[in-house]
Design a protein around this nucleic acid. Structure first.
Lengths: 142, 142
DNA sequence: CGCAGCTGTAACAGAAAATGTTACGACAAG
DNA sequence: CTTGTCGTAACATTTTCTGTTACAGCTGCG
């Protein structure tokens, strides 16, 4: 499995909040969300923290606390979630600097950055085309 | 940095082979390639092994051994390299199975697979549009 | 005002994957 | 047969993500 399941976790969380909202449940606690994702509540709180900093969810403190969406599910795209969780780009450059004496070693990194940038752009365009509302609809189909 | 620099290493290797070929140097040893990438020869041999299995490079054994491209630089695309190195997809599903009692836990994975599949498709389309010859040209520009 | 319940975050353990290193048998040209 | 390089195993190192425990901080309610 790929290293990065943060987008998966965050999308799961938001989809679950969207369903709860539609069912009239105002807020969910991190324990309730963790029960659906089947993981530790701290993992969920970390993910929800990312989403809160991005303005996608709201938190209520104190007794009767919990989380709710800050916007409608139609207004939240997977691109916003992708940016919120701060995922690494799919391809990394060299871990150690190439040999700058060599013409390839000198010029390959700008060339790769260009190519990887083009890939990143099409990824973002594609992610922007799917909303949490779309995800909820597809989720309930199965 | 992202975990996966395998595509970067493999592209660097192929670009270097393409330049050597153009300069009239028939083969390069893994030591020579490693000197440009600035890493251990074994890393290079592992990468070249992937590329050989994909039919992108050829190896000559014995004394005076070394590597050369199996096709012209124009005929090798980054998509072929991507497939050759067997990189993980950018997004992974849940590490542990979600709670199947929950409607979201039950339906989210097929929905995510759909969305991630669309992303994978546009990545592949973009990678297929760049060849090693393109990379060499861009590399020598700087 | 104090209690209860949940958040926010630090600290650390564990797991998994990529990378780097050493070593050595296999192979082919001369 | 000698020499130089490949192919690969074995292991150390590093990095990143995930999971867990612990505890201070906040807020509604009695």
């Amino acid at each position: 499995m790929a290293a990065n399941s943060r987008l998966t976790i965050a999308t799961h969380v938001l989809t679950w909040l969207a369903l709860a909202q539609r069912r009239g449940q105002e807020v969910l606690t991190s324990d309730q969300v963790a029960a659906s994702v089947n993981t530790n509540p701290v993992i969920i709180r970390r993910s929800l923290g990312d989403l809160r900093r991005a303005g996608l969810v709201e938190v209520r403190h104190g007794a009767g606390a919990g989380w709710s969406l800050a916007r409608t599910p139609e207004e939240i795209t997977l691109l916003q979630v992708y940016d919120a969780v701060g995922a690494e780009p799919p391809f990394g450059l060299h871990r150690t600097e190439p040999n700058l004496e060599c013409p390839v070693g000198r010029g390959i990194r700008p060339a790769l950055s260009e190519a990887y940038g083009r890939v990143e752009r099409v990824i973002r365009r594609e992610l922007a085309d799917t909303s949490i509302a779309d995800m909820l609809r597809e989720t309930l189909m199965s």
